[in-house]
């Protein structure tokens, strides 16, 4: 048994504690916004917030999350920064197939919140280096995060 707080609510699952956290969240927790891509930690599609820090859930076993707070994109639905990022991604054309978007927005939200000044494009590229997008070419994603960062700081 593994028990954790998923998107603010207590959640207990009977999956083996050595099951990948990404698989447990999708198959047992119904968190289909957690995407499984490469399963090697390269693509970042499975990124979640673990105790507030972005981590790749395919590189964790579910036992490692025992007693901790796990937030997927769905859990950020009322977060003002994530909501603004959702809109700026849409405006900038930063979403095409959408597979990478949950992980991108999770990391971008943490990035924008952690910075006390508006992020430069280099800062954003360095912060998103662990998230791959095969559609947009990144330029529009960086633009969307840059806009959200500027609005957040001002």
């Amino acid at each position: 048994m593994t028990s954790l707080i998923l998107n603010g609510e207590q959640w207990t699952t009977a999956v083996n504690p050595t099951t990948r956290l990404s698989a447990a969240l999708r198959e047992s927790g119904g968190a289909l916004d957690v995407k499984e891509g490469c399963l090697t930690g390269h693509c970042g599609a499975c990124t979640i917030l673990l105790d507030g820090q972005p981590v790749k859930s395919c590189l964790l076993v579910s036992g490692q999350a025992e007693g901790r707070s796990v937030i997927s994109l769905k859990g950020l639905s009322t977060d003002p920064v994530a909501t603004y990022l959702q809109e700026s991604f849409s405006r900038a054309g930063a979403v095409q197939c959408g597979f990478c978007t949950p992980g991108m927005i999770i990391v971008a939200t943490a990035l924008v919140k952690a910075s006390e000044v508006p992020l430069s494009r280099d800062d954003i590229r360095a912060g998103l280096v662990g998230n791959l997008c095969r559609c947009t070419g990144y330029h529009k994603i960086v633009t969307a995060v840059e806009e959200a960062s500027y609005v957040h700081e001002s």
Binding site: V107, G127, V129
Partner: peptide, 9 residues
């Protein structure tokens, strides 16, 4: 080393 999310783990 690696990327910021992996450095957190």
């Amino acid at each position: 080393i690696a990327d910021p999310t992996i450095r957190g783990q």
